[in-house]
Amino acid sequence: MYDFAYHKPTNLADAAKLIGAKKDGRLLAGGQTLLPTMKQRLAQPSDLVDLAGVAELRGIKAEGGGVTVGAMTTHYAAHTSPELRKAIKALAKLAGGIGDPAVRNRGTLGGSIANADPAADYPAALVGLGATVNTNQRKIAADDFFKGLFETALKPGEIVLSVSFPAPKRAAYRKFANPASRYAIVGVFVAETANGVRVAVTGAGPKVFRATALEQALAKKFAPESLAGASVPAAGLNSDLHASAEYRAHLIGVMAKRAVAAALK
């Protein structure tokens, strides 16, 4: 790891000022991806601004039929939050399947979405539920937030404060995990929401995406059998050691069916 300067602001204003002033600075949330990347010398930030002391980024609040989750909420806290479990059980369950127990104790919602790993779990929930990302500068719809491979709509120095998730009628997430990394080879989040059915897919492409063909199929009837005949084309999907594009396309269908079945339970 290259050396860097370490900062630990205690409020949002100081954090914003610090990160704004450092051209090659990075925000440190849970560090579960950033630190391994730095250890392999794949990143060389001049400064790390640790957000652990910023009170404004914490807390889970149920409000108006939805839930707002602070950016520094750990996966474990999200997984075990009674408020979250009550409002959007699928989301709480998803958080309990990220990484491993020790990683869940440190990794955060904000860190995960800002990193925008194409195989991470949270992006599927954000897009699948039609969530809104609240930053210190604006509100960003989930559909507009994930731009590409490790790329988001966040501007330099912009800090994610929280994510607001509207509660769906029903939802579920099913992940087919990479046996090595435990990231998603394919993860499918399905939700029947006030604004229709949403199906978000992670792990399969360069970024999380909505499977519109599956959404249309489910719009007629939210049931596993509706997906018979509907599919996502393999073209453009990831192909690697663990899964070919064809296999991923197939798995999207299987995981979607299973997610729908789970959501109906």
Partner: peptide
């Protein structure tokens, strides 16, 4: 689970616990 995979150019593709199960 375990498969050691080299690319045709001799790069080890399964070079960490993230890819070697």
């Amino acid at each position: 689970t375990e498969g050691c995979v080299y690319a045709a150019d001799g790069q080890l593709l399964s070079g960490s616990f993230m890819d070697y199960a």
